[in-house]
Design a protein around this nucleic acid. Sequence first.
DNA 1: TGATCTCCATAGTCAAAGCCTATGGTGCGC
DNA 2: GCGCACCATAGGCTTTGACTATGGAGATCA
Lengths: 293, 293
Amino acid sequence: MQFQQLLYFVAVAETRHFTHAAERVHVSQPSLSQQIRALETELGAELFSRARGNIGLTEAGEALLPLARRILADADTARQEVQELAQLRRGRVRLGATPSLCTGLLPEVLRVFHDRHPGIRLLIEEGGSHDLVRQLARGALDLALIVLPLPPGSPALTTVELLQEDLVVVSAASGKPPRRPARIADLRDQPLVMFRHGYDLRELTVAACRAAGFEPGFTVEGGEMDAVLGFVRAGLGVAVVPSMVAGRAGPGFRVTPLADPGLRRTIALAHRSDVAPPRAARELQRVLLDSRE
Amino acid sequence: MQFQQLLYFVAVAETRHFTHAAERVHVSQPSLSQQIRALETELGAELFSRARGNIGLTEAGEALLPLARRILADADTARQEVQELAQLRRGRVRLGATPSLCTGLLPEVLRVFHDRHPGIRLLIEEGGSHDLVRQLARGALDLALIVLPLPPGSPALTTVELLQEDLVVVSAASGKPPRRPARIADLRDQPLVMFRHGYDLRELTVAACRAAGFEPGFTVEGGEMDAVLGFVRAGLGVAVVPSMVAGRAGPGFRVTPLADPGLRRTIALAHRSDVAPPRAARELQRVLLDSRE
DNA sequence: TGATCTCCATAGTCAAAGCCTATGGTGCGC
DNA sequence: GCGCACCATAGGCTTTGACTATGGAGATCA
């Protein structure tokens, strides 16, 4: 059984005429006759009663017709569905990102992408780089925005550096102004508001303090970016955050840059090396990279 | 798009392994790879993410999979339906017969046929030969039991003589016994009970009377076979019926054969010449012809 | 680190399938 | 009765799909 045989069969059933049916499906009449005959032979039953000037369906033909129509319709649907996915009219991208990027970089980029491809659903997974890398490897994400360098033992990922973020110190506007520019060592005697485990910022800040020779003390820890900023504004302590986040934090904050060499982190776009990302993900990747300019 | 491509696709989707899938569908692995690739090219999208040791469906593949399964299932259903029709496990026969045959010959023959092919529906159309011939030509009947000769102007039908019926005179057992054997001429002065228009017996009896030189008179006319016999038993008149019908008419009747040459009619099985009857009809035809022995 | 193994892709060959044109054969109508 | 309409058949050609053999890349283990 072949799709074109079913197509020819339906054409004959509807025109009740071999020659006309052949024209409709754009083959010669003998080709059509031959295929109908092949289908009949395979199925083991005549499908048409071939009377002069009166082609009619046999009972077997009547039984086959609705199924043939449905099969052909399903095949059309399949073609269309897949093409819509390929043409970015439908689909999804599963993007992982660190929490700070979700509030900083992503909103604008995703708006641009969504305007361009309104049919693509965007599924955002917020998490630390470590988790995101695991999910990439498992195939649960198409792309992820992670902090370089990759954690040791990472699977084969391809990364493209996207941007470098400077980290700054935020404190309550109402409190005593810190030295400007700040130094890491200044944090030794400062109460710190710290993110929950999983934030790359936590590991990075703690590592920097230890490199400067002290263990940082936290007044509050846990909570997401918004909560941390709220605690800082309330005067519970200072925090180290990306400058992009601090810049949009609103009033009530004092933002203090760090003296050279400061703290920076490199944000990269990562995907599995062994599999090309889906079409929609490649498109989002392009938009992300373009957004740097 | 081809059925085998969908079959291979489903096999790979389910095994997540090209080599195993190839074994399952009994082709070599390169053939399967090639067909999958052809399908992907035609649809314009990759269907699988081919990572070492971890074959997975892409979004396009996910979209295609349920449709592919349904198409393959429909194709199987189609094959099975048609084969069941061909193997006489299902189906129908549309049989036309004259009313007298419906009560005489058919019940036993149809019982035999039904015992042999319980899945075949039997649709009986009762009518005069003229009507039956028209319905055969229109394709509304597969087979018909008609009275020979065919009406003038009949379309091309193939007929096989089935049996010859002797006609006899039936009268009420309570009445005056007629001459035995009877002659057509005896009917001149007899009140006749006559069938409705459309019965071949009516045309045949009237024609015989006219050939004998008189116009028959009817006390009652119209009604089916059972009604006519009822009228006869009630003493309203005599009737000319097939001997087979008279024999099973029950008590209350006197059956009188006609003197030579008598009246006979030839019952034949007819179908269109231009189209072979469907399988189930041919089978019923065989059973009918066998029933003569 | 390198030899081996697994597994999918590629190359080349061959038989079969499908389409074409030309032609045959059979009812139907003028 | 001759042509006409229409489906079937025949023969040739191109394409396709299957096979075997081989390549190449990642995983595995000594």
